[in-house]
């Protein structure tokens, strides 16, 4: 990574560390969704950007994570967050293997549609198993213990802007480091080669299905963990979380932020969460504006907002340097 990039990241990290002290309670609470979705999108974008597969059913893994947290905390009374995360990784992995074995045989629209179908299959499964999952009413998610510590004596908002905030931030940092290593590993390079030209990759001895499957599994696990983080924030899981439009929201965040940049999707979550919050406080119709924004991004700047920003940044820097040279 370039020096300016590292400095920039450290600045953002420093800001996030002090944010609960300086930010308004509600905005700090919103930041929690940012952490959760960012983790989920790390997984989504491993597939979309690095492997070239667009999943329109990734909310399924949010569901796996969220319902795992719901079952463990409110049904089995196992409130440990770490247990939820581990069980989710395991379950997401198993689900991803089962679905992936079928899905990775296809690419492009077929892959998108198959994942959508599996997502919707899971959605109707949740709806119909009323006795188990509460059907469309969903299940509640109890406040989890973090690192074995019980915070139930704490005020809900204090929990969110204190322990849970830093816990989520920690998970995001760990997940980012793990994903950064994955995309910069030999495995990551092979994934990009498959995305760019599967035939050629195969002739270079890369077993494309094996790689796609592994990418799908890893992707599912990350998104699952994102789901676990998301669950306590609303304290509730319902089938709407796995509906295909929620998968669409994830696609939206990734695209708007910038799919071809490692940090693009994170910027996308900020934009999504903030915009939705701001717009919906004025008018009810945030999807209209989101749709227009998405259309504009797709047509005008497929690299997303982060590309626009980096281009702007280099332009300004070049101007400044030119100015210095002139004087």
């Amino acid at each position: 990574m370039k020096k300016t990039g590292i400095v920039f990241l450290l600045l953002i990290l420093a800001f996030l560390l002090v944010w609960p002290f300086i930010g308004p309670e509600y905005q700090v609470y919103l930041t929690l969704s940012f952490f959760a979705y960012s983790v989920a999108l790390l997984g989504f974008n491993l597939l979309f950007n690095y492997t070239g597969l667009l999943s329109f059913g990734h909310a399924l893994f949010i569901g796996v994570g969220g319902y795992t947290a719901a079952f463990l905390t409110s049904r089995f009374h196992i409130p440990y967050m770490e247990v939820s995360i581990l069980v989710t990784i395991l379950l997401s992995g198993v689900v991803a293997i089962l679905i992936g074995l079928i899905c990775v045989r296809y690419i492009k629209i077929y892959f998108a549609m198959l994942t959508l179908a599996f997502g919707m299959l899971f959605h109707s499964f949740l709806m119909k198993t009323y006795h188990l999952t509460g059907g469309d009413e969903g299940m509640s998610v109890e406040q989890p213990y973090l690192l074995g510590m019980d915070f139930s004596s704490m005020d809900q908002m204090a929990f969110f802007s204190g322990p849970y905030y830093y816990y989520s931030l920690g998970v995001l940092i760990l997940a980012s480091i793990a994903m950064w290593r994955i995309v910069h590993s030999p495995f990551g390079l092979c994934l990009t080669s498959i995305r760019d030209n599967p035939d050629k990759a195969e002739y270079l001895g890369i077993g494309i299905r094996k790689y796609r499957l592994l990418a799908f599994i890893i992707s599912g696990c990350f998104t699952g963990v994102g789901g676990v983080l998301l669950a306590p924030i609303t304290g509730h899981m319902d089938p709407g979380m796995v509906f295909w439009t929620h998968s669409g929201d994830m696609v939206f965040m990734t695209l708007v932020g910038g799919f071809s940049n490692f940090f693009g999707p994170m910027l996308g979550t900020v934009i999504f969460i903030t915009l939705r919050d701001v717009i919906s406080s004025y008018i009810e119709y945030w999807r209209l504006i989101f749709g227009a924004l998405l259309a504009a991004i797709v047509i005008l700047s497929p690299g997303g907002v982060i590309e626009v920003l980096t281009n702007l940044f280099t332009l300004i820097r070049r101007k400044i340097m030119a100015g210095e040279n002139a004087s």
Binding site: R181, I182, S185, P186, F187, G188, A201, L204, G205, I206
Partner: peptide, 22 residues
């Protein structure tokens, strides 16, 4: 990196998930 893909394949390093390529 194009050439590296072939070398990774030859050395069977493709499944190294967390190793640094650089």
């Amino acid at each position: 990196n194009t050439i590296k893909v072939a070398i990774i394949s030859r050395q069977a390093k493709g499944m190294r998930l967390f190793a640094s390529l650089a």
